[in-house]
Amino acid sequence: MKRGALIAMILVPFAALYISLFIGRFDVSAADVARILASHFLPITRNWPASAETIVVQIRLPRAVMAIFVGSGLSISGAAYQGMFRNPLVSPDILGVSAASGFGAALALLCSRGAFALELIAFLFGILGVGLTYLLARTYRSTPILMLVLSGIIVAAFFSALLSGAKYVADPESRLPAITYWLLGSLNGTTMQSLAMALPPIVLGGAGLMLVRWRLNVLSMGEDEARSLGVRTDHLKGIIIVCTTLVTAAAVSVCGIVGWVGLVIPHLARMWVGPDHRVLLPAACSIGATYLLLIDDVARTASASEIPLGILTAMVGAPFFAYLLRRTQGAWQ
């Protein structure tokens, strides 16, 4: 891999993060933003309004950081799963994590728990959902891919039904819209507190995936081949599932269900750096972070109303994917 690409991989998300802090509906001058940011490192007289500082430090910064971590987390999870399942149609929620998390969040919204409880319950339900899938798929001390996929479908269907049930009983004046908007995905609720909650599992799971990424190359050749090369495939699959679930459950619990990122970004990354997971995962990480950050910039600035993330990721992602697919005839796979 070329050194230029590596540098771009690292620099572009940071550049996007920096630029995002200057974008927003609230009128803060670029000079003020730059000075507010610099004031955390340099001695600068604070002569900007307090509200400007709140906007940049409490609202824009946590939200942009969250977008970076959620975007990279979902993308890296998608890339890992696509390798593990040896299927380019796989997204990180194949084992039911989104449906289960969604139900957890709906439950928390129904019972009117605060934001902290909502994120925690959604996260735990996501873990629970994948746990159920794994138990269901476990046969003769192994977990065949086909069993995993089918169990994931079952668990997702079950939690989707529970979720619909929660929506059905929800108060239509307050709770039903809250659940509906939550499911459409948004980073609007991001605070320093939610960052503190979501980042550890995302970083932990992401780091885990990064550490096993060269073994993914072996696994993606097929389980029998991997086993014959001395890789303990069930062990490895277990690690990948645990890491991916940590990342996805944390991502979903803070921003709702954001589709397409985990499916499309790995393809984009593969087109850029090829199928070698050693570079594919970092590339997916970088592209995903930048992509979700830019999408979220649109979501929060395009109109006075917040545009749900899930709508934008699919509306931008699907046609873009279609375009790539037509142009390359799927050759990068």
Binding site: F26, I59, E306
Partner: peptide
């Protein structure tokens, strides 16, 4: 019941 961003609320102040 329109969803709005925190920053938009701050802009409306």
């Amino acid at each position: 019941g329109r969803p709005v961003t925190m920053e938009q609320v701050a802009a409306w102040d």
